[in-house]
Design a protein around this nucleic acid. Structure first.
Lengths: 156, 156
DNA sequence: CAGGATCACTTGCATTTTGCAAGCGATCGT
DNA sequence: ACGATCGCTTGCAAAATGCAAGTGATCCTG
């Protein structure tokens, strides 16, 4: 556990990993503008450390020579369960904007959510896993008529 | 998730929580001498922040007026899944001293491990959940004749 | 009940990490 | 050719951390 924390036990690393994992971020600029307010020097430092730790890889974008695409490695995507538990804990115990039923659903369908995250990673599907709250049906999960939330992976 | 990380997203907080959760730590001195090398002022600061966040409670020990007993709250013990996932990830992807079969077992019997952690918390059982590696049968888990690892909660 | 040990902290100060703003070279679109 | 954009660096101030010594309350021993 202490080794895990040495790799990403700071305020930013796990947020970067989350954004790569479920928000479809690929580039430096996306992180910079994500609203969390990370400084560019810290962002550089964290991306390099995550790469050195084998959690993230970089590849130059073929369409744009300036751009660098960041991507999680298998080791990185294996952090999905950690992030999911962090999300569930925060939603259960702190004031968040997250709809309550959504969290219940994610806790119950844990394995489905993780499988969907892995699929998106394998297939390089950049669609954000979740809509911004209040967005309606624009993400991978959507509200159904009964007011509950239905993962699209079940609907087909 | 960012809210979770605001509460304990630093190098020490989760280690403190782990020690309370599975190593049976109760007092300031135990943390100080745990070998991780946390400075006393930082330890004070983290314990106070965790208390302010409702993750830890303090009570004066009735047997010794100097001593303060720290204990996880329900909110604190609910972090068990997070810590377990961190442990599993670290063991799978980094060089650790942990025996490989033990980790496989913990990943497989996740729910049993979590139930045992909760039971120990409810009953204020201070026995360390795990022996130090190589300790044999002195903890809550022990090796069985086939070389696998058997949680005592199943045997007893 | 005196004196020293122990406990949970505090304090002062050096070092490290972080945050902020500006700037840089390479590449891109026009 | 020229300005905009990209990932990243630099300089410097502010905050967090680490380290050593010290503090007051309580305990244990003789």
């Amino acid at each position: 556990m202490s080794i895990s924390l040495e790799r990403f036990g700071d305020r930013w690393s796990l947020l970067i990993i989350r954004d790569l994992m479920v928000r479809g971020f690929r580039t430096f600029k996306e992180f910079q503008e994500s609203g969390e307010g990370i400084a560019t020097n810290i962002l550089t430092d964290r991306l390099q450390k995550l790469e050195a730790a084998g959690i993230v890889t970089t590849e130059a974008a073929e369409t744009d020579g300036r751009r660098v695409n960041y991507r999680l490695t298998g080791k990185g995507i294996d952090l999905a369960p950690v992030l999911l538990e962090l999300l569930i804990w925060g939603a259960q115990h702190e004031e968040t904007g997250a709809p309550c039923e959504l969290i219940v659903k994610m806790a119950k369908d844990r394995e489905d959510v993780l499988a969907e995250i892995r699929r998106r990673w394998r297939e390089r599907d950049p669609t954000p896993l979740l809509p911004k709250f209040g967005d309606g049906a624009s993400g991978r999960f959507s509200t159904n008529p009964s007011g509950g939330l239905t993962p699209l992976i079940r609907a087909g």
